[in-house]
Simulated assay, not measured.
Amino acid sequence: MTHQNTPTASKIPEIGFMTIWQILGNKKANPPTPPLLPISRTTFLEGIRSGKYPAPVKLGGRTNAWRVEDIRQLISNLGAAQ
């Protein structure tokens, strides 16, 4: 099966940016957003600080987002490590 046909890949836009809640999921949203990465927000932010996960792009004010390409690469790398 190719990367494009995996259930996770279908949730990721082709281009653009993703918020932390699109990546980690949001149980409080209506409807709830399922996570792409099954980790906590704290673990994700610690991974960014350590360089394990990609850094966000500042879009303005308090708005940070991650490049879709970076998240796709992260998922691919995590899958290859297993």
Rank of each mutant, 00 (worst) to 15 (best):
G25L: 02
Q22A: 05
A80K: 15
E46N: 10
S76I: 05
S40W: 14
I39H: 00
N64L: 07
K27E: 12
L24Q: 11
H3K: 05
P7Q: 04
K11Q: 11
P31W: 07
E14M: 01
P13D: 01
K11N: 10
I23R: 00
M1D: 13
I23F: 00
E14A: 08
I48K: 00
T33V: 15
R67F: 11
M1K: 10
P54L: 01
G79Y: 05
P31R: 03
K58D: 09
I20K: 13
L37R: 13
R62N: 05
I39L: 01
P56C: 04
L37T: 15
Q22N: 14
L74R: 13
T42E: 14
R72K: 11
P31F: 03
E14Q: 03
F44M: 15
I20D: 13
T6N: 02
S40F: 05
G79N: 12
S76T: 14
P35C: 01
G51T: 05
E69A: 04
L36Y: 12
Q82Y: 10
E69Y: 08
A65W: 02
A81C: 06
L59P: 12
T43A: 02
A9G: 08
I20R: 14
T42W: 03
R62C: 02
M18D: 10
P38V: 00
L37K: 14
V68R: 14
Q73M: 01
P13E: 01
G51V: 04
A55S: 10
K52P: 11
K28S: 07
P34V: 10
H3E: 04
P35K: 04
A65K: 13
A81N: 11
V68H: 12
I23Y: 00
W66R: 00
R62E: 07
E14C: 01
L24S: 11
T42D: 08
I39K: 00
S50D: 07
G60P: 04
Q82V: 06
V68F: 07
T33W: 05
T2D: 09
G60N: 03
L78R: 10
P56M: 02
G60Y: 05
G47D: 05
L45A: 00
R67G: 06
L59V: 10
A65T: 09
A9P: 15
K58F: 02
F44E: 12
N77M: 03
A55Y: 09
I75E: 05
S10A: 07
S50P: 03
E69S: 13
D70K: 09
G16K: 09
H3W: 10
W21H: 12
S76H: 13
N64D: 03
I48E: 00
N64S: 12
I48F: 00
A81Q: 13
G25Q: 15
I20Y: 10
E69W: 01
S40E: 07
Q22M: 06
L74K: 06
N26I: 01
T42V: 09
Q82L: 06
F17T: 04
A80Q: 14
V57D: 11
V57C: 14
E46T: 10
L59G: 15
A9D: 09
T6E: 03
M1L: 09
K52D: 14
Q73I: 12
D70T: 13
T8N: 05
G61S: 11
G60S: 04
L37D: 07
A65M: 11
G51R: 07
T42Q: 13
G79D: 12
